[in-house]
Lab assay of single mutants.
Amino acid sequence: VSVELPAPSSWKKLFYPNKVGSVKKTEVVFVAPTGEEISNRKQLEQYLKSHPGNPAIAEFDWTTSG
């Protein structure tokens, strides 16, 4: 189950709350306009370098507050 949070234009930000008793931590995933899922800052940096014209990296908020 995921919750969609505010994201930069043409992107989606999905929040996957951890299940009770789960060892997996809460996860935030950005979905690029191409449909590619980005789950960490390093991936995001690589994606933005190879896909010019996207929002600046500073516009991506990895917190769950939206």
Rank of each mutant, 00 (worst) to 15 (best):
K12V: 09
S65A: 12
L44F: 01
P33F: 03
T26S: 13
W62N: 02
L48D: 00
I57L: 13
L14I: 11
G66T: 12
E37G: 05
A56D: 12
A7W: 04
V23T: 14
P17R: 09
F30V: 00
E27I: 15
A56G: 14
W11V: 02
A32V: 01
N18A: 11
V3Q: 08
V29P: 00
K19A: 14
S2C: 13
A7L: 04
P33D: 02
E4M: 10
S50I: 09
H51R: 03
T34Y: 01
L44W: 01
Q46N: 11
A7Y: 04
L44R: 00
I38G: 00
P52I: 05
E27M: 15
Y16Q: 06
G53K: 06
V29W: 06
F60H: 00
P52T: 07
T64Y: 12
P8H: 05
L44T: 00
E59C: 13
K19C: 11
K13Q: 03
S10H: 14
P52M: 05
F30E: 00
F30W: 09
D61A: 05
E59A: 09
G21K: 03
E27A: 14
N18L: 10
V3W: 09
N40D: 13
L5E: 05
H51C: 03
P33M: 02
T63R: 08
S10F: 12
G21W: 03
K42M: 12
N40Y: 05
F15T: 07
K12L: 08
V28K: 01
S10T: 11
G66P: 12
S50A: 13
N40T: 12
P6F: 07
P17K: 10
T26V: 11
L5N: 05
G21F: 03
T64G: 11
Q46H: 10
E36D: 08
E45Y: 11
L44V: 01
W62P: 01
K24Q: 15
E37K: 14
F30D: 00
L44Y: 02
T63A: 11
S9H: 14
W11M: 01
E59M: 08
V23N: 15
S39N: 10
P33T: 02
S2M: 14
V23D: 15
W62F: 08
T26Q: 13
V31S: 02
A56E: 13
S9A: 14
L48A: 00
V31H: 04
P52D: 06
N18S: 10
I57C: 05
Q46W: 10
Q43L: 07
T63E: 10
E45I: 09
K24H: 15
A32D: 01
W62K: 01
E45T: 08
G66A: 12
A56N: 14
G53C: 07
S50Y: 10
I38W: 00
L5F: 09
K42T: 13
E45F: 09
V20Q: 13
P52C: 04
K24I: 15
S50M: 12
K49P: 01
E59Y: 06
N18M: 10
V1F: 11
E4I: 08
D61T: 07
S22Q: 09
L44I: 02
K25S: 10
S50G: 09
S65E: 12
P8L: 06
H51Q: 03
T34F: 02
I57Y: 12
K24D: 15
V28R: 00
E59L: 08
E27P: 10
F15C: 10
V3Y: 11
E27G: 15
P55C: 03
E37Y: 15
H51K: 03
F60V: 03
S39C: 12
P17S: 11
T64S: 11
W11H: 02
A58V: 10
V20G: 14
N54L: 04
F30R: 00
E59K: 04
I57K: 05
E37F: 15
G21E: 09
L14P: 01
G66I: 13
V3P: 05
S65K: 12
Y47K: 00
Q46G: 09
Y47S: 00
E45C: 08
R41M: 13
P8I: 04
A32Y: 00
V28H: 02
K24N: 15
D61Q: 07
E36R: 03
S22F: 08
P52A: 06
F15A: 11
K12W: 04
R41I: 13
T34E: 03
S10G: 15
V29R: 09
W11T: 02
S39A: 13
R41F: 12
Y47D: 00
L44K: 00
F15K: 05
A58E: 14
S2L: 10
P52V: 05
A7S: 06
F30S: 00
G66Q: 10
A56F: 06
I57S: 07
G66F: 10
S22Y: 08
V20L: 13
Q46F: 09
S10M: 13
V20R: 07
E36F: 03
A7H: 05
S22G: 14
I38V: 06
A7F: 05
E4T: 08
L14N: 04
T64C: 09
P52K: 06
R41P: 12
D61R: 04
S10R: 14
I57D: 04
K49F: 15
V3K: 07
S39F: 13
S22P: 11
G53E: 06
L14D: 02
N54A: 07
I57N: 04
T64R: 08
G21P: 08
S22H: 09
S65F: 09
P6W: 08
T26G: 15
K13R: 04
Q46T: 11
S22L: 08
S10Y: 11
T34L: 02
E4G: 08
P52N: 04
P6K: 08
S9R: 11
G35Q: 03
S9K: 14
K24A: 15
E37I: 15
N18G: 13
E37Q: 13
G35M: 03
Y16S: 06
A32K: 00
P33N: 02
A58M: 09
E45D: 10
S39G: 07
A32N: 01
D61E: 06
A32R: 00
T34N: 07
K19W: 13
V31K: 06
V31Y: 07
L44N: 00
P6N: 08
T63G: 12
L14Q: 05
P6V: 07
I38D: 00
L48P: 00
G21L: 08
V29T: 08
E27H: 14
S50R: 10
N54Y: 04
E45G: 07
W62A: 01
N54F: 03
T64F: 10
N54V: 04
K42Q: 13
K13S: 02
K25F: 14
E36I: 05
G21T: 09
G66L: 12
Q43S: 08
T26A: 09
L14A: 04
K13E: 03
N18R: 09
V3E: 08
T64D: 09
L44D: 00
P8A: 04
V20W: 11
V28S: 02
V23E: 15
V1M: 11
E36L: 04
A58I: 10
E37W: 15
V23C: 15
S2D: 06
S39I: 13
T34Q: 02
A56V: 08
V29I: 12
V28Q: 01
